[in-house]
């Protein structure tokens, strides 16, 4: 029990680190995932290929490997950024592949006729996707997007291995200080639980608000 009260600021710092990683990487993943899903259903062949390659590469690369690639690879091309930013990039891009596929499966649940009706009225691809197809797809994808973002929150722990301040990484300092490892981990787990449950609640609210049956 003392481990929390004695080291509250350390925990808090790690907790906030994880929250920050989760929030920024989620935002990036949602934006990129949305873009890639649009690419994958676009009438332009080259965009579809780009989207498919993006998803295939990122979804099939182990996240740790992706972290290595970003942290060690990008600086070789002259791109030097703070580790936190690299971590957000790696996490966000990785998760965007999953978001893209969730959105695409949602798009596939919308009957073809909806997009056809929109196009037959003279709406462009972007208009029909944005005002007719995606708003209907959105309702079915709320729960799986929640799950994907929960996975992202937990995956952010990998960033700790790359000297980014986050929750899991606090165990190293605490065990060096000689605290009971079990309690250390219990409090870390509670920290993650707070974050993931918050995401759950948020998506439950969204589902209640938007995910109504037609």
């Amino acid at each position: 029990m003392d481990v929390l009260t004695d080291n509250f600021s350390l925990y808090a710092e790690g907790f906030l680190g994880t929250v920050e990683l989760t929030v920024y990487a989620s935002a990036l993943a949602l934006v990129l995932g949305f873009l890639m899903a649009s690419f994958r259903v676009a009438p332009v062949g080259s965009l579809r290929v780009f989207g498919t390659v993006w998803v295939t590469v990122l979804r099939n690369t182990p996240l740790t490997l992706l972290f290595f690639a970003v942290m060690l690879g990008l600086p070789r091309f002259g791109l030097v950024l703070p580790f936190e930013l690299f971590a957000v990039l790696a996490l966000g891009c990785y998760t965007s592949a999953f978001i893209c596929e969730v959105l695409r499966s949602g798009i596939n649940t919308v009957p073809r006729g909806q997009g056809e009706a929109a196009r037959s009225l003279g709406m462009s691809f972007t208009q029909s996707l944005g005002t007719v197809v995606l708003p209907q797809a959105f309702r079915t994808v709320i729960p799986p997007i929640g799950s994907t973002l929960i996975a992202l929150a937990k995956n952010s722990a990998i960033a700790g291995a790359f000297s980014v301040t986050e929750l899991l990484g606090t165990y190293k300092t605490l065990s060096e200080l000689g605290y009971n490892i079990v309690w250390t981990f219990v409090w870390i787990a509670v920290g993650y639980l707070i974050i993931t449950l918050t995401i759950s609640v948020l998506f439950n609210v969204l589902e209640k608000r938007w995910g109504v049956a037609r």
């Binding site: 006729g113 009706a117 003279g122």
Partner: peptide, 20 residues
Amino acid sequence: LARLRAEVGMVFQSFNLFAH
């Protein structure tokens, strides 16, 4: 093409009204 489609309306067997 979109502009031309706007000139030619289409009515489908399954109505295809925007459900939302």
